[in-house]
Design a protein around this nucleic acid. Structure first.
Lengths: 155, 155
DNA sequence: TATTGTTATACTCTATAACTATA
DNA sequence: TATAGTTATAGAGTATAACAATA
């Protein structure tokens, strides 16, 4: 009986969670080959793309809490992929930069993640993949803007 | 600078994770109104749809590990939404059934989750939502069948 | 007084090994 | 010996409160 979860399959959240589970499983294997996890990889990419970024802004971009980012950066710094340098204009803050080693690893890992992405979307046309991206971003937007709890019916 | 994560936005896994985060956040609020979490809700639905189901099979359907299911069922049983009854033909196993109270709550919660689902997919046409379901199931399938590690290039 | 980064902590979800009782 | 359910435990991700240094 392969469809015993048919009721749940009607919900977009369930199909998203099932699909994301297998995607993250595969991605985790790929990134482990570079000594990275999902969190450290995405953090490294954003730092490489935005040199001099500070932690509060980085946490906003990645939608994670600042205390959790501290541990991720500790990992990246210990692996010599990222440096924290005191900001000259604000001695409370750090400017984050990818080291040459970090940039190289980021590029190699990104190539592998591109391959992973291609594998995961196999069987879908370019237009279908583009539509998938659009739909997911629309849903993210819907979720952000429905923060008004008055819209949410309660029992 | 709203697109500082543009590199990551090219990956389907990133857009899926961002979208799922907001969906699960909203869904969590909806389900909390019924005293349920995501895990207890989906477990309750599958039990109601498949009376007499046993735990090993249920864990397979939901793709969770059996030890983790035990705690979920403890919750559902303590809330008197589900019963574990010794299988007459195999005294190691339990037959899982939703109580009348469990069926009522399941129906009410499902109505609320339907509303949540509609809110989350707002701005998307019926055809776009259908395409989204199809794409996500294709990706889940791709992930399942690419279990062969020989396909995954390593550094 | 407010902000940056930090520490400590707690809770959920997830994953594995080892146990018991039955088969 | 194999299976169904269970216990114990550990890891990762996530969330909040409170702190020191600086603004």
């Amino acid at each position: 009986m392969a469809s015993s979860d048919r009721t749940l399959r009607a919900f977009i959240g369930y199909d998203m969670k099932r699909a994301l589970n297998v995607v993250l499983g595969d991605l985790g294997i790929v990134l482990a080959g570079f000594g990275l996890r999902m969190t450290t990889y995405s953090t490294l990419v954003v730092i490489r793309d935005n040199p001099g970024l500070r932690q509060t802004r980085l946490a906003e971009i990645l939608m994670i809490e600042r205390p959790n980012l501290v541990l991720i950066l500790d990992d990246l710094e210990e692996a010599e992929l990222v440096t924290r340098i005191r900001a000259p204009d604000d001695r409370r803050a750090y400017e984050l930069t990818a080291t040459p080693k970090g940039k190289r690893l980021c590029e190699q890992a990104t190539a592998a993640v591109n391959g992973h992405d291609t594998r995961m979307t196999r069987g879908l046309s370019d237009e279908e993949v583009a539509a998938l991206h659009r739909a997911l971003r629309q849903i993210e937007l819907n979720g952000r803007t429905s923060d008004d709890p008055s819209e949410i019916p309660r029992p």
